[in-house]
Simulated scan of single mutants.
Amino acid sequence: MIPVIVQDYKTNDVLMLAYMNEEAFQTTLSLGKMTYYSRSRNELWTKGMTSGHYQYVKSLSIDCDKDTILAKVSQIGAACHTGNRSCFYTDMVKEEYNEKNPLEVFENEYNLILDRKLHPKEGSYTNYLFDKGIDKILKKVGEEATEIVIAAKNPDPEEIKYEIADFLYHMMVMMVDKGITWEEVLEELSQR
């Protein structure tokens, strides 16, 4: 019996801890879905068979002592039997810090822009851009790119950060308008 730490392959969020025996490991390999050994029921358990919340294997790694597996998975739905995304949702001790996973920030902003396109809100600048169409969106992308160049010639790094953020926002509006996701962009970038 070996413990398995399960992480979301995109965000690296720890989803759960479970156990595998050799049969569970072999079943995981053959199905491509995480299969564990339930110590309470004394049987194999493919995650999601009853809930539909499957964990599709992306990678399996073993630690240096060869006594713990790290599984990176594509999690469908909740990992925890309580309905939470992760089993680790209760803080016992927590120092205040500001965690910013770049991909999560980009995806959250992208999803907000997509929501504005699907559910327009009166007075929304994002909806103004969508209403004006692709030419207006592209004009703003071009303007913001030029403003980055101008800001980079100035000594104030705060101005550059501000202009880069403006550019990224307008670029994401263009991405949503064209139906391009961050996953597709990152896939392309990883091929270079």
Score class of each variant (00 low, 15 high):
Pro3Cys: 10
Val4Arg: 12
Ile5Thr: 15
Ile5Lys: 11
Ile5Ser: 13
Gln7Ser: 13
Gln7Phe: 10
Gln7Val: 04
Tyr9Arg: 14
Thr11Leu: 10
Thr11Lys: 13
Asn12Ser: 15
Asp13Ile: 12
Met16Thr: 14
Leu17Cys: 06
Leu17Pro: 03
Ala18Pro: 04
Glu22Met: 12
Glu23His: 09
Ala24Thr: 01
Phe25Glu: 15
Gln26Ser: 13
Thr27Phe: 05
Thr28Lys: 12
Ser30Gln: 11
Leu31Phe: 15
Gly32Glu: 05
Gly32Gln: 11
Lys33Gln: 08
Met34Glu: 01
Thr35Gln: 04
Tyr37Met: 06
Asn42Gln: 11
Glu43Pro: 03
Leu44Arg: 03
Leu44Ile: 06
Thr46Phe: 11
Lys47Tyr: 01
Lys47Trp: 03
Gly48Glu: 08
Gly48Thr: 05
Gly48Cys: 12
Ser51Asp: 00
Gly52Cys: 07
Tyr54Asp: 09
Tyr54Ser: 08
Gln55Pro: 02
Tyr56Asp: 10
Tyr56Gln: 12
Lys58Leu: 05
Lys58Asn: 05
Ser59Trp: 07
Ser59Phe: 08
Leu60Tyr: 02
Leu60Ala: 04
Ser61Trp: 13
Ile62Phe: 05
Lys66Cys: 09
Thr68Phe: 02
Leu70Thr: 11
Val73Asn: 08
Val73Pro: 07
Gln75Pro: 00
Gln75Cys: 07
Ile76Val: 14
Gly77Ile: 07
Gly77Thr: 09
Gly77Ser: 12
Gly77Trp: 13
Ala78Trp: 00
Cys80Thr: 07
His81Trp: 08
Thr82His: 09
Gly83Trp: 00
Arg85Tyr: 15
Arg85Met: 12
Phe88Arg: 09
Phe88Leu: 08
Tyr89Ala: 06
Thr90Pro: 04
Thr90Val: 14
Met92Asp: 04
Lys94Phe: 04
Glu96Asn: 15
Tyr97Met: 13
Val105Gln: 10
Val105Asn: 06
Glu107Val: 11
Asn108Val: 11
Glu109Phe: 00
Glu109Tyr: 08
Leu112Gly: 00
Leu114Gly: 01
Arg116Phe: 03
Arg116Asp: 04
Leu118Trp: 06
His119Cys: 01
Lys121Phe: 01
Glu122Pro: 04
Tyr125Glu: 00
Asn127Trp: 02
Phe130His: 07
Asp131Leu: 05
Gly133Ala: 06
Ile134Asn: 10
Ile134Phe: 04
Ile137Thr: 06
Leu138Asp: 01
Lys140Ala: 06
Val141Leu: 08
Gly142Met: 10
Glu143Arg: 02
Glu143Leu: 08
Ala151Thr: 03
Ala151Tyr: 07
Lys153Met: 10
Asn154Met: 05
Asn154Val: 00
Asp156Asn: 07
Asp156Leu: 02
Ile160Gly: 06
Ile164Gln: 02
His170Arg: 11
His170Tyr: 13
Met171Gly: 06
Met171Phe: 09
Met171Leu: 14
Val173Gly: 02
Val173Ser: 07
Met175Tyr: 00
Met175Ile: 00
Asp177Lys: 12
Lys178Phe: 03
Lys178Met: 08
Gly179Asn: 14
Ile180Trp: 04
Trp182Phe: 13
Trp182Gln: 06
Glu184Cys: 10
Val185Gln: 12
Gln191Trp: 05
Arg192Pro: 05
